[in-house]
Design a protein around this nucleic acid. Structure first.
Lengths: 226, 226
DNA sequence: AGTGCTTGTCACAAATTGATATCAATAGAT
DNA sequence: ATCTATTGATATCAATTTGTGACAAGCACT
């Protein structure tokens, strides 16, 4: 999942970005409203964390433009004040959630996770398919009763595939959701990651393969009905 | 929109129910956890507002059961205390939002509306014809409940034919849409592709042919009405 | 109407091209 | 120091292309 973090105070932005990354998100961060708007146009983020008070463009304005351009990316507002009318106004503008500053970082994480899930219409933090089970909040994976340890990136990949199970996911889409900005173009990171993930979730010899290749299109994770 | 309100304190339940009704929601209210669970099973609510502290079943427990039974109804938690770990736990259980008691009623309304709206905003683009179904974004095709795997070019061809269903499409048009620019003039790529596509979507022996040739003109994809 | 000619269409197989899997080595992070 | 991520090279595999022959439909001429 890829998150855009917009917050002008470096003292807040840095630790938050770090914590989000530690939770397995790909994070792009900026402190400038106009730049944020630009980035949001360039990429379809899974969640946007948006400070209201910003240099350049105001957070509200960024949200307004975003909605006007038809994007329905979940947005979490960061508000300095606790005034009710502010929150209500934010929600009516199309924000999905807000936090009052002085929040605990773990709470922000939990909310960003919840919003991310919502984008894919999943309401439970557990993703399953056949004998495979992934718990988004506990960050654990089991296959047929066997615990599987996945490196963060592989976990993120599996999570993304599961969120879109049954759908063919292109390399580009994977790249954009799993990795943040610095991705070198002509690289086979995705291939390699898929290869590693396949091996990792093949817990026993008689394991049905779940991740299928659609040549020229991408990958699908699908029930082995066939 | 139908809302289930679960809150044991009558002093809170009554005015909230009234306000929700005034905003145009159909409201069912109860103060008992077990009863709430029962009601949630009987009816597929658009939003559930759930107090954590409840007689009978605990709010958390209700949510857990709800998710376990596969319901993905949006849930808004009402928490008495402002303890961070409580909120985090709730969100991790699959709640979509929460409010700390002492909230303003208009804020609750705004949030319930936001949650309810979401449910009806999703749709994946699908092209269909007879028992054939093509999902453009998932890049999947089904024929009469059977998954069909199509190579990229065949997929593109079928997509194009479906976009122009009922119309006769010339070879040249197909060439121009499916193949970028350069195709050697005297080539039968299109014929070959159509042939392959016909075979691919003939999933069973008693399949009506959908792609018809118009001699000297091109191809049409049409309902077998005739 | 029937016969043969012509042209458009279909189906197959072989060849080409291009995409993908996997490995091993390096760079980076914890 | 160990684990993880990234890269590039290579072997493998599958989709697409191309060429060929058979086939069917339309046409003209008898």
């Amino acid at each position: 999942m890829r998150v855009l973090l917009v917050e002008d105070s470096v003292h807040l932005r840095q630790p938050v970005a770090k914590a989000l990354k530690a939770s397995g998100f790909a994070v792009d961060a900026t402190g400038d409203g106009a730049e944020a708007w630009q980035m949001a146009q360039d990429h379809d983020y899974d969640v946007i964390v948006l400070d209201i008070m910003l240099p350049g463009l105001d957070g509200r304005e960024v949200l307004k433009r975003l909605r006007a351009s038809g994007r329905d990316t979940p947005v979490l507002f960061l508000t300095a004040k606790d005034a009710v009318e502010d929150r209500v106004a934010g929600l009516r503008l199309g924000a999905d959630d807000y936090l009052v500053k002085s929040f605990a970082i773990e709470e922000l994480i939990a909310r960003v996770e919840a919003l991310g899930r919502r984008k894919y219409e999943k309401r439970s933090p557990k993703l399953t398919m056949a004998d495979l089970e992934l718990d988004q909040s506990a960050k654990t994976v089991r296959r047929g009763g066997c615990d599987v340890e996945l490196a963060p990136q592989l976990f993120a990949l599996l999570e993304y595939l599961l969120l879109r199970k049954g759908q063919v996911v292109s390399r580009t889409e994977i790249e954009e959701h799993i990795y943040d900005e610095q991705v070198s173009p002509m690289s086979n990171v995705v291939d390699t990651a898929v290869c590693a993930l396949r091996r990792a979730i093949a817990v026993s010899d008689d394991c049905v393969p779940l991740i299928h290749t659609r040549r020229g299109m991408g990958y699908v994770i699908e029930e082995p009905t066939r």
